[in-house]
């Protein structure tokens, strides 16, 4: 840094506000200022301690029990193995099926809201419904999913019924993120395409949807996070078996296989069987997944903002 070229009468550095903060304040103001500042730091410290403790404790208890074998085998008394491969497989199945159902519906709804709907009241109704869906707790989804899919549709305790329920639950997320990114597609693009004589659907397919792919991906990632973390729906609609499913053996298997996902497996280990070591190992897996999902959402979100 260059120095001042003229000899100053008194050279002084900026006294940063930390150093002379609150000098000469009255006693009452000093107490208010220092007290609240202390409280803010205290609460932030508490939050951080909590964070470090939670994450640290889960890793401390879980890591020693985590092994390649744990991730790649199923529980078997005969072979003496203790693994969560079925839970991983079930989780992937649920994530896949849920997204296959929810994604077209959610993106379609968002496209309808931003590109087609002209009736203000209809838009308000749909948006109100979306907000309502996102406020309903998962235990109620579990109830309705049980009634509607397990009973009425006769799917019983099955991962398909759970996936259908989760599709209802994740619809708002996908609608919202897609809608947000559709709004970032410049109006001029649409006018340009329509002005060239292309139909509305053609315009949406070639201009609007490709331009909002980031938002759609963000919606997917957030949904994956919610599905992976969900437990009530999966426990009461999806069942809690810890054995391998062969979903694709037959259509009947596809529709009626039940089983535990990672969260349900954790619950079963911890609460039903009091097996804390494998439970913490599953927790580590879930924590790492959550971290990766957040990271992915952030990366995609950043790309979206740069546009």
């Amino acid at each position: 840094m260059e120095e001042a070229n003229i000899m100053p009468q008194t050279a002084l550095e900026v006294c940063r506000n930390e150093k002379c903060r609150g000098k000469g304040l009255s006693m009452g103001r000093k107490i208010y200022d220092r007290g609240l500042r202390g409280l803010v730091w205290l609460c932030a410290g508490l939050t951080c301690t909590l964070l470090v403790f939670l994450i640290g404790y889960i890793f401390y208890r879980g890591l020693p029990n985590l092994s390649l074998e744990f991730l790649t085998t199923q529980e078997s008394l005969l072979k003496g193995t203790m693994g969560i491969l079925p839970a991983i497989q079930n989780t992937l199945y649920v994530v896949g099926v849920t997204l296959v159902i929810a994604l077209p519906l959610g993106v379609g709804a968002a496209v309808y809201l931003t590109e087609y709907a002209s009736n203000r009241r209809l838009v308000t109704t749909i948006e109100f419904a979306t907000e309502t869906l996102s406020g309903i707790p998962s235990i109620l989804y579990a109830l309705v999913g049980y009634l509607a899919f397990s009973k009425t549709l006769g799917l019983g305790y099955s991962l398909l019924a759970a996936s259908l329920t989760l599709a209802m639950m994740n619809l708002p997320t996908i609608i919202r993120t897609t809608q947000e990114s559709l709004k970032t597609v410049p109006q001029g693009y649409r006018e340009g395409a329509l002005g060239l004589g292309s139909g509305k659907w053609h315009m949406i397919r070639t201009i609007v949807l490709p331009g909002s792919i980031d938002g759609i991906v963000t919606g997917c990632i957030l949904s994956v996070g919610r599905i992976v973390g969900e437990s009530a729906v999966l426990l009461y609609v999806g069942g809690m078996d810890g054995t391998m499913n062969n979903f694709f053996a037959s259509l009947d298997k596809f529709a009626h296989s039940s089983g535990a996902t990672l969260t349900v497996q954790l619950y079963v280990f911890a609460k039903e069987r009091a097996m804390m070591d494998p439970a913490f190992a599953v927790a580590v897996v879930l924590l790492v997944l959550t971290f990766l999902i957040n990271l992915a959402a952030k990366v995609v979100g950043k790309r979206l903002r740069q546009r």
Partner: peptide, 12 residues
């Protein structure tokens, strides 16, 4: 990250 941790993990 705290927001994303599944509720069963908190319970455990």
């Amino acid at each position: 990250l705290l927001a994303g941790i599944p509720s069963v993990v908190y319970g455990m």
